[in-house]
Amino acid sequence: MLASLLSKAKEVNYFSYIGIIGGIFVILSEFLSWFSDNNLILIYFLSPFDPEAFVYFFPLMSGIICLFGSILYTFRQDLKINSIIIQLIGLGFNTIFILDFIVNQIAFILTIQLGFYFFIVGFSLIFIEIIVKLTWKEEIPVNQIKEKKNTQIEE
């Protein structure tokens, strides 16, 4: 079972790992400091009376959803549209988080720390993966295109 899963993963084009890395980045951003040495979980517990405080968990939720979407595509390439829709839901959490949180905290933009950068890089990587997945031509697999080009160069 594990061997078959691994062999399937080996067949996957490398770009699918962009989304996995992006998802991991977004998850990690939750635990890294954003502004003034506080990570988002700490900020959540520091704001018990804020009805919108749960929004601080959005990067974590988003990262997990996007990671799931990317891993799903890694093992089941036939479920491409499904994985994209799952990733879009994940990115939806990120967009709401950006509009709700980052815009309000823009005054602290000069003190941003690693968490923020991880979040932005992760978000971008997931978005790039979706675009690459959508623009990818599946009729001729990557390895065959490479082979073709090599043969033409050799000849």
């Binding site: 491409k80 879009l88 967009t95 950006i98 509009l99 823009i106 675009i131 997945k133 959508l134 623009t135």
Partner: peptide, 25 residues
């Protein structure tokens, strides 16, 4: 193709998001 139509939707949606983000700032 459904993939291509999704690209159009994505470009519009995230384009609107960027516009809204800039306006919010």
């Amino acid at each position: 193709k459904i993939e291509r139509a999704l690209i159009i939707s994505l470009v519009i949606h995230y384009g609107a998001f960027i516009v809204l983000f800039i306006i919010s700032l």
